[in-house]
């Protein structure tokens, strides 16, 4: 019988704990497929964040470290400087990367650390139940912006790709989305390229993934994907910000 679908080797055979309709699982799978395709599982070390994916070290077959909130870029800097020939990636959400860990990601990128960051932007805090994220859209209702995010009270969304792409140490920066199949396939290409940029010692690489959080957005999974397309992409335009033509 022909195998038409199987679990990538880099993913462990354990059930994931994510909510129905959450796109974390898809991003995990894309990372695992890329690790398989590049044949780097044995030398990859991942760093888990704090947030819904705090324990995604249970899902990847490669060696993993769990980092304090926001500190994954610093932790992976330590790992990479000890093992420069290994492949090191962080998996971080918008609170982890763009709020509490802003300094760490900016300086890892500025140093041109040869690490890859997969940055999940779902415009909300998932694990702590739906508070405002730095990436929450204007007028978006969250548990800490019950009347909507108002710029005069809460400031404006942080555009991470735009911000980091100004840094000379950042070699590859791209924003992708999980809202349909075509974009998921594009996301995989970007993730693969980001790893390859690291392996070619070009510098820091980051892929921002627009993702859904049906639970905290209060939407069905299907409507949540629609919300990415209609609400998020206008604020967070997709595409490559840096390193598109890098030879890897």
């Amino acid at each position: 019988m022909a195998v038409v679908f199987k679990r990538p080797h880099a993913l462990r055979d354990v059930p994931m704990h994510y909510c129905p309709g959450c796109t974390h699982g898809i991003v995990h799978r894309l990372i695992a497929e890329v690790i398989d395709e590049l044949g780097i599982e044995g030398k990859t070390i991942g760093v888990s964040p704090v947030g819904c994916t705090y324990n995604n070290y249970e899902y990847f077959n490669c060696d993993m470290q769990q980092a304090a909130h926001g500190r994954a870029p610093a932790v992976s800097t330590g790992i990479k400087r000890v093992h420069p020939d290994n492949v090191v990636f962080t998996y971080q959400g918008d609170g982890d990367l763009a709020a509490i860990g802003t300094a760490e990601i900016v300086h890892a990128a500025a140093r041109g650390e040869k690490i890859t960051t997969i940055f999940i932007n779902n415009a909300i805090y998932g694990m702590t139940s739906g508070q405002m994220a730095p990436t929450t859209l204007l007028n978006q209702v969250t548990t800490t912006t019950p009347y909507g995010r108002k710029p005069e009270l809460h400031g404006f969304p942080i555009k991470v790709c735009e911000l980091l792409s100004t840094l000379d140490g950042a070699a590859f920066i791209e924003r992708v989305s999980m809202h349909n199949i075509k974009n998921i396939l594009n996301a995989k290409k970007a993730i693969k390229k980001a790893f390859q940029v690291q392996m070619a010692n070009k510098g820091f690489s980051l892929v921002e993934v627009l993702s859904s959080c049906p639970t905290n957005w209060g939407l069905s999974p299907e409507k949540a994907l629609k919300w990415i397309e209609e609400k998020m992409i206008p604020v967070y335009p997709l595409g490559n910000f840096k390193g598109k033509d890098l030879e890897v």
Partner: peptide, 24 residues
């Protein structure tokens, strides 16, 4: 060896965490 002037004490101790966890 490696010397990094980190962006903060917080980053420095977390670099220590990563490097120690990597066996150094």
């Amino acid at each position: 060896g490696t010397f990094i002037q980190a962006e903060s004490e917080i980053a420095a101790i977390n670099m220590v965490y990563g490097a120690a966890g990597a066996g150094a």
